[in-house]
Computed example of a mutant assay.
Amino acid sequence: MSGQASPAMDVAALEAIDVHTHVQASVLDSPATAEGDESFAAMADYFKAGAVTRFTAPMIAEYYRRRRMAAVIFTVDTMHLSGREQIPSNEEVAEQAARHADVLIPFASIDPHRGAAGVAAARRLIEEHGVRGFKFHPTSQGFFPNDRLAYPLYEVIAEHGLTALFHTGQTGAGAGLPGGGGLRLKYSNPMHVDDVAADFPDLQIILAHPSFPWQDEALSVAMHKPKVYIDLSGWSPKYFPPLLVRYANTLLKEKVLFGSDFPMITPDRWLADFGKLEIKDEVRPKILKENAARLFGLAPH
């Protein structure tokens, strides 16, 4: 693994594990607000987040360290639709996570349209850089999760016993822009991920976000497929559909994960609203930390 040695993650000392945060600036550049970036500004407006700072990985590490939390960090590779290379690179995300291994868990992102080169990069990122999973955003990457062009990537992820995290449902990306920025919501129906779970039974999968307008589908897939989880990022808990809360409290209490979608939604805001939900006392620690620790194989220190 690249990067310098760092203290191991002390899971027992953590109050929560946020499985969904975005690194949006490189350590090589100066962090900036959304000013001057129409897409980023539109997303901040969608989340009613105000002026949002682009966080580097070390900034995220310090932010979560102060809160005694760990965070899964990633960028999103949207080369096929956007024509832009991701910033920061997957390698930088992994390197910085290694330097802050007490609080950061690195995921990579590879656009499935990269083909064989992407598959080779995925294997290298796992074996040489120690990434722990991969983030897919079907709407921003322009593909159906069950499209066979992505299957070689899933094979590598499953081979190494890692996790694939799929954006599902509506997205803040492109929201409010003419034509939604050309992004198509149809790609992010969680039923397309059901095919992936059936074809790769050993692949650990997270369906990201309350999956509006397909919440029932997401609950069904998570109920039916043993290795499919749901993260609760991207929405304030006060807007969670009642059925999602009911399942999180009962039938899916071992498979629901805390996620914020930082920096658009902060863990402080998310946890304040989560505290007002009628969640059983014995279920709260499962959602906030225990389910993620088990999923990622993080043994208590």
Rank of each mutant, 00 (worst) to 15 (best):
M1F: 13
S2E: 11
G3I: 12
G3A: 13
Q4I: 14
A5C: 05
P7L: 13
A8I: 07
D10V: 02
A12R: 15
E15I: 08
T21R: 12
V23N: 04
S26D: 04
D29Q: 07
A32M: 14
A32Y: 11
S39W: 12
S39G: 11
S39H: 15
M43S: 06
A44I: 01
A44M: 01
V52C: 08
T53V: 04
F55Y: 15
M59Q: 15
I60W: 14
R65N: 06
R65A: 01
R66H: 13
R67P: 01
V76K: 09
V76N: 12
V76E: 12
T78Y: 03
T78C: 14
M79A: 06
A94V: 07
Q96I: 01
H100P: 13
D102L: 11
L104T: 15
I105P: 02
F107H: 02
A108D: 01
P112C: 15
P112R: 01
G115F: 07
R123P: 12
L125D: 02
I126F: 01
E127Y: 11
E128T: 05
G133L: 01
G133Q: 06
F134M: 15
F136K: 02
T139G: 07
I157W: 08
G161I: 03
T163Q: 00
A164H: 08
A164P: 06
L165T: 08
T171D: 07
G172D: 05
G172M: 05
A173N: 09
G174M: 09
A175L: 04
L177F: 05
G179H: 03
L183K: 14
H209L: 13
H209S: 15
P210R: 04
S211M: 15
F212N: 00
Q215G: 01
D216N: 07
L219E: 08
A222L: 13
P226I: 15
Y229D: 05
S233Y: 06
P237H: 04
K238A: 12
F240W: 14
F240I: 07
T250D: 09
L251Y: 01
L252S: 03
K253G: 00
G259H: 05
F262E: 07
P263D: 11
M264G: 09
I265L: 14
W270M: 10
L271C: 08
L271P: 12
L271A: 06
F274R: 10
K276M: 06
K276Y: 06
L277N: 11
I279T: 08
K280Y: 10
R284Q: 09
K289Y: 04
R294L: 13
L298H: 06
H301P: 12
